[in-house]
Design a protein around this nucleic acid. Sequence first.
DNA 1: CAATATACCTGGATGC
DNA 2: TGCATCCAGGTATATT
Length: 280
Amino acid sequence: MPELPEVEVTRRGLLAPLTGRTIHQITWSVHRLRTEIPHRLLEEQIARQQIRTIDRRAKYLLLRMASDATLVIHLGMTGKLGLMPQETGRHKHDHLLLLLDNGLELRFNDSRRFGTIAVWPAEHVIACEQAFSEKEGLEPFGDEFTPENLLRLARNRQAPVKSLLMNARLIAGIGNIYANELLFAARIHPLTPAGQLSALQWQRIIAEARQVLQTAIEAGGSTISDFLGASGHPGYFQLQFKVYGRKDLPCLMCGHHLVKTTLAGRATYYCPSCQPAPRT
DNA sequence: CAATATACCTGGATGC
DNA sequence: TGCATCCAGGTATATT
């Protein structure tokens, strides 16, 4: 159920246990995910390889092999990565299992199968990564996430600012929950046409986006996070939601009743007092 | 081109 | 208890 913080928490949790390990065996399920599981490439490029490190771009995890081949994992809506002893019983919806040289197994479980598994072959990794990265938006913690760039992206756009923040081709990693939360923190109404925002308002959005995402990462994300099995920590950030899921409850800042509406098919929460309606 | 609708899936919550 | 309905954290593609 991952947005950027949950993916980053997963990356950090897996980094030490996986770095330097060799993948002995790979097993996959018969089901397809959002795309087919590339089992031939998994066998050719990932099996028997040593894991060098794990990176994140947008909501994608990039498991870099010592060979430079890269295993790309997207968790979709319901994807989870778990690390557990090989003899642990299989769960329903386990779709990919990587057996490591220490007897632990990394398992990708995804009930809705909106996740994706891809492999960048060692000999094509630079081209694959470039093509991939061009389709992804600005990283919220990156140097290019600036008021100037956001003003430029939003110019002439009538779409609501929340839609722009969630457009992964423009901005990476901000999903529905955190879009709601950061707009509340920035005191900007989610329906405000993106092109109407000032540099100062974009500056607030940037600052609050980083604050909200960073706080969520430090709280372990918002997921029921069993990605490390018994040794993992649950995510606690959901306890800090200020608007998400709080329809009709009093605003924590001003006491007004919070409002829920639907925007582009997604649940949208705001405080009509702290986030005044945009001029029309 | 920009914006929205739809499709992809399962499972949990809710209501009758 | 059973059944129908709605809703869910994402993204690619089709359609206006």
